[in-house]
Simulated assay, not measured.
Amino acid sequence: MIMTMEEIAQMAGVSKSSVSLALSGKPGISEGTRHKIMDIVKKSGYMPRGLVKPDKPNGLNHTIRFIACVNSGIVLEQYATQPFFMELIRDIEEQCRARGYSLFFSSVPTDKFEQAMDTLEAEHESGGMILLGTNLTREQIRYVAQKQPNLVVLDTCFETLNVNFIVMNNVMGAYQAAKQLLAEGHQRIGYVQSHARMYNFDCRKKGFLQALEEAGLTVEETHYITVSPVVFGAQEEFKRSIAELKSPLPTALFCECDYIAISAIKSLAELGIRVPDDMSIIGFDNIQESMIITPELTTVHVEKATIAELAVSQLLSMIDGTGVIKTKSFIDTQLVLRNSSRALEVAAAR
């Protein structure tokens, strides 16, 4: 029999929108409410209309689960509204829809990771899983792989795990950014990094420093600035670090992500430092907001659509039994030149 969302909502004593959020795995309701709704669905033996799928001749489960581990300092509870993840999720949804698969979202709290993973598939079995590995450890990913063999992990990579990983080429992207600043004549370059560390940021630092080393340069110890990676506005921590620097200031800054770069531009404006006239800025990710900030942000473009397409293709090949060999895929980046960086001699002339 088929149960409507209205009937589920009435039984749970919640709104229809709460039921929709619970069934899709999206944030916006408490975990207690989510479990209450899913428990009603499970115990009643009913399935909402949206989950009833026509029989497939090949007998495959045409549901894919997308999981993010939240509340870690990088991936927030509202991760689906963070620009980078929002764009990536949209691309994954489009790929799934085009291939006749449904995509369900689940947010797993960091402090209850294993417990949540144990109950997810029991609530609603999926044919495969795309895991946002941004902030996950090797052990956590290994645990997930034991629960769901049809697994593709995005945004991180552990080379020794027998798991499919897809990640942007972080080393290449930051290397490209450094080479651009060097080509513009900058030699006194600062590095603005996240206080929360992860695979992507560590690889970006490696690529950036490699380019500087090839040019016989380093980043001065006082020119490393540490800030929050998820704040768009001006940051007092950044402003204080710049204000405490002895002259001469860096002529350029590389920021580990666009969030940090946009925050840096706003912070510098409050200090009376003009970008790019007094200081050039380059970010990483090429989120939509990078074209809204003034000046528009020079940044490293991540091929999110390519990552999404490859992730869904790999997962479906595992589901249908053709994808036996696990792979580690690095998607190359492109530097996008806009107005936040400028040749040093042009900046100095103003």
Rank of each mutant, 00 (worst) to 15 (best):
V108D: 02
K328E: 03
R49C: 11
H35M: 13
L344H: 02
I307W: 07
I273S: 14
Q235P: 10
E93S: 06
R49A: 14
K36G: 02
P276T: 06
R90G: 05
H62C: 15
A116I: 14
I67E: 05
A22I: 10
A347S: 13
C157D: 03
S17G: 07
Q148I: 10
P295C: 10
F330T: 02
M38H: 03
G13K: 05
V171S: 06
A174C: 05
R97I: 08
T299Q: 12
Y199I: 12
P229I: 04
M291Y: 13
A311E: 11
V52Q: 09
M291E: 07
K179I: 14
R138I: 09
I74M: 03
K16S: 10
E270C: 10
E303R: 13
T298I: 00
D118W: 07
M318Y: 07
V19D: 02
M11E: 10
M279S: 09
I273W: 08
K53Y: 15
R138E: 00
K53E: 14
D111I: 12
T298V: 00
L120M: 14
L103I: 15
F158D: 02
G50C: 11
K112A: 11
D55A: 14
L151D: 03
V171F: 03
E87V: 12
T156L: 05
F208L: 01
V14P: 14
S126N: 04
A211I: 14
S20G: 11
L136T: 14
R204C: 06
A22D: 01
